[in-house]
Simulated assay, not measured.
Amino acid sequence: MITIDYQSRIPIYEQIVERFEMLILKGVLEPDDQMPSVRSLALQLSINPNTIQKAYTQLEQQGYIYPVKGRGNFVSGSGKLAEEKKQAFFQDLDALLAYGREIGITQNECRNYIDQYYSEGGES
């Protein structure tokens, strides 16, 4: 479910956060699904439990998961989070398109690139 790139410059806890965010946003982990326990995930990934706890704390602060005392962590509803991520994406895309226009990229070039990207399996 979660893989870590030990060669990456991205801290391990951030990699864990990113992987769980994507699993939640894609619907692989559904609302109210129980998250793996800190201890079991730490054993599975062969990393310090404090690293997992740090990632879970960040996921909780961002609204992806919620704790239940004595039972563990569970996935929050991701509808609002997914919408926020989409809005952030489109804001970034607006900036990229403006930059592309400034350097002479045409609307047709953008369309062709997007069509090619999705036809080559870029769509999940």
Rank of each mutant, 00 (worst) to 15 (best):
S40Y: 12
Q44V: 13
N73T: 10
A42D: 15
K69H: 13
A98D: 12
G63K: 03
L97V: 10
I52G: 01
T51S: 13
G104P: 02
N73K: 10
E84D: 02
K86E: 00
T51C: 11
F90M: 07
A82R: 02
N50S: 15
E83L: 08
S76N: 09
D94I: 10
G100A: 14
L93F: 11
I52N: 02
S78R: 00
G72C: 06
T51R: 09
Q91S: 11
E60S: 09
Q44I: 11
N50K: 14
Y66N: 06
P67L: 14
G79W: 03
D94R: 15
L81W: 04
L93Y: 09
D92G: 08
A88P: 00
E60V: 04
R71W: 10
P67C: 14
I52R: 02
I65K: 03
G100W: 14
I103V: 13
S78V: 00
Y64H: 05
R101I: 01
K80N: 03
T51K: 09
E83Y: 06
I65P: 03
Y64L: 04
E84A: 02
T51H: 09
R39P: 10
S46H: 14
L96W: 12
I47T: 08
Q58L: 12
Q44Y: 15
S78F: 01
E84L: 01
G79L: 05
Q62C: 00
E83W: 05
L93C: 06
L96E: 11
Q91H: 09
Y66M: 06
Q44K: 15
K69M: 11
L81S: 05
Y66T: 02
L59Q: 02
R71L: 14
Q91E: 10
K80R: 06
Q87G: 06
F74G: 04
Y56Q: 05
L45Q: 13
I65A: 06
E60T: 07
E60C: 07
A98E: 13
R39I: 14
K86M: 00
L43D: 15
N73E: 08
Q44W: 14
Q91Y: 07
I103W: 12
A88C: 00
V75N: 02
N48E: 12
I47E: 08
K86A: 00
G63T: 04
E84W: 00
K85G: 00
V38C: 14
R71T: 07
R39L: 15
Y64M: 04
Q53C: 07
S78P: 01
Y56T: 03
Q53E: 13
I65M: 07
A42S: 15
F89I: 09
K80M: 03
S76Q: 08
Q87C: 05
Q58A: 11
Q91N: 10
Q44M: 12
G100C: 13
D94V: 08
V38R: 15
I47M: 10
K86H: 00
